[in-house]
Amino acid sequence: MSDQTALSDTVSMALGDAVTGKLEFRGELTLLTTAERIVEVLRYLKDQQHFNMLADETCVDYYPKSPRFGMIYQLYSTSKNVRLRIKLMLGETNPVVPSACAVFENANWFERELYDLLGIQFSDHPDLRRIMMPPGWEGHPLRKEHPVKVEEVAFTFNRKRIDEGKIYARE
């Protein structure tokens, strides 16, 4: 994978300490960066390295590890057929990342989804509101502290309590 070594060297050279590390696993290159420099990194990769497509923007909840959240940007270059992953870590309290909307427009809905399901805040996002869950929803369902089940399994001793939720069942 000498192409990837060359790519990571070029990017590290151009961006200096914005690239804080790199990982290679099974031929996939991951560059590590920080929340403050992410827009700069994406801008450089799009304009100078032809990574013209943000294939995915997602986040992982590493609870109970610290830092807790790992933001992941999957980039793809349609002209060179090269993929690249950018990753940065966020702390548990008040996770804020600058929005990537100014660089990649499709980041808009990705970031709304992350805000909705994981509670990541995006500064400078044009329209940061819930996209999957209803507007009045409380909590962020993909966080690990969110309860997995909403209804317990019905037995004879809790049958009545469950039935109370089904207000139209007896009509």
Partner: peptide, 16 residues
């Protein structure tokens, strides 16, 4: 689908 996103039976909202 015993999870946050799905209504646990439509008899919560309409008479069945």
């Amino acid at each position: 689908f015993n999870n946050y996103a799905i209504v646990q039976g439509v008899d919560e909202i309409v008479p069945v």
